[in-house]
């Protein structure tokens, strides 16, 4: 629990400084002599806060994984076909701006397509239509088209979401609709991100049910008893479909790729909260680091974009409180 203890001053200062400042304000009104103690305390608090938070936000190895990044501005915009190609009956015309990554020039490019859609058309339908009818070189991932396989994470109008769950008409504004690849995962081609890095993060938290009775686990003669209440304790975190959207939304991952990210941490919580798991405190130690739970700044944007309601932000805060609990208990 080393990092938990090392991080205690930061969290103490984050709460302490406002309290002290409030006290200083009140004392200046009612009891001025108190300032003599409060101001030095505020100064110490500010220093503690500033220096320890700097470690969190501007870490030493800010960019350590992957190849160097490139200018991500769009360099070329092409307007394709003025005539809309009709997809469905009773269709409406929509301007779709498709931002894609070109691996040979290492640049973002944008094409604008005019397509006709109906009220059921999803972004995935539209992309498939473009691929089949207009430009077969377009690459994207897709499989189940019902929001459970987690392949089709893209950014629509700036918001990370699943292409198969996003309705085109509902997301079209006056200037049309814009689809671009995720930035929070490394890029491969067009709308396709590379997930090797993402999977490495997931593996790092040991996402398996650990049992001491390995043999009985495989023989499986009787079930491990578990009540519905115990199931509910970890259920939402097990909804993760590994689409990578939370990493794309996370401001910490976006600025510091060393941070393990909301997906992996939510999975740590999923197995920690499972009454059948026997890894215990070991699990917390795996994520008890600046790159783990203590890197989270609680922006909460991961939970806002999660298509399955996993709520990684809550999972991470629960992990933090659990880490503090255990650090006190097993000191």
């Amino acid at each position: 629990m080393r990092e938990t203890i090392r991080n205690a001053p930061l969290y103490a200062a984050m709460i302490g400084v406002p309290v002290l400042m409030m006290a200083e304000l009140l004392s200046s009104l009612f009891y001025p002599p108190a300032s003599a103690i409060l101001v030095p305390l505020i100064i110490i608090g500010l220093f503690v806060f500033g220096f320890s938070a700097m470690r969190e936000v501007y870490p030493k190895h800010a960019i350590s994984i992957g190849t160097p990044y490139y200018f991500n501005g769009i360099t070329k915009t092409t307007v394709e076909k003025k005539e809309p190609s009709v997809m469905k009956k009773n269709a409406k015309e929509v301007k779709l701006k498709l931002v894609r990554f070109n691996p040979s020039s290492k640049r973002m490019e944008a094409n604008i397509y005019t397509i006709a859609v109906d009220r059921f058309t999803t972004v995935l339908d539209a992309l498939l239509h473009i691929k089949e009818k207009e430009d077969s070189t377009l690459s994207m991932r897709y499989s189940c088209r019902m929001g459970i396989c987690g392949s089709c994470g893209v950014v629509v109008n700036g918001k990370p979401c699943l292409a198969c769950e996003t309705n085109v008409l509902n997301s079209t504004g006056l200037s049309g609709i814009e689809v671009s690849p995720m930035h929070g995962n490394p890029l491969l081609k067009d709308l396709v991100n590379d997930f090797d890095d993402f999977f490495r993060r997931h593996i790092a938290v040991k996402p398996q049910l650990f049992r001491e009775d390995k043999v009985a686990q495989y023989v499986a003669d009787a079930e491990y008893p578990q009540t519905q209440k115990q199931v509910e304790a970890f259920l939402p975190y097990s909804y993760c479909i590994m689409c990578g959207l939370c990493l794309d939304a996370c401001p910490v991952v976006n600025t510091n790729p060393d941070f393990i990210g909301p997906q992996a941490l939510s999975q740590a919580q999923r197995y920690l909260a499972d009454s059948r798991d026997q890894l215990g405190t070991e699990r917390i130690k795996l994520v008890d680091s600046m790159e783990g739970i203590w890197g989270c700044e609680f922006a909460g944007s991961c939970s806002k974009v999660c298509p399955k309601g996993v709520d990684p932000a809550t999972a991470i805060q629960l992990l933090k409180s659990e880490a503090v609990d255990r650090a006190i208990k097993y000191k």
């Binding site: 499986a220 003669d221 519905q228 970890f234 097990s238 499972d274």
Partner: peptide, 22 residues
Amino acid sequence: PKEIRFFEHLGVPWSREPDGKI
């Protein structure tokens, strides 16, 4: 039935009866 229990041992959250049975 054995396979269902095996999956339970891998971590599948089967819906349960109040007494903990599947």
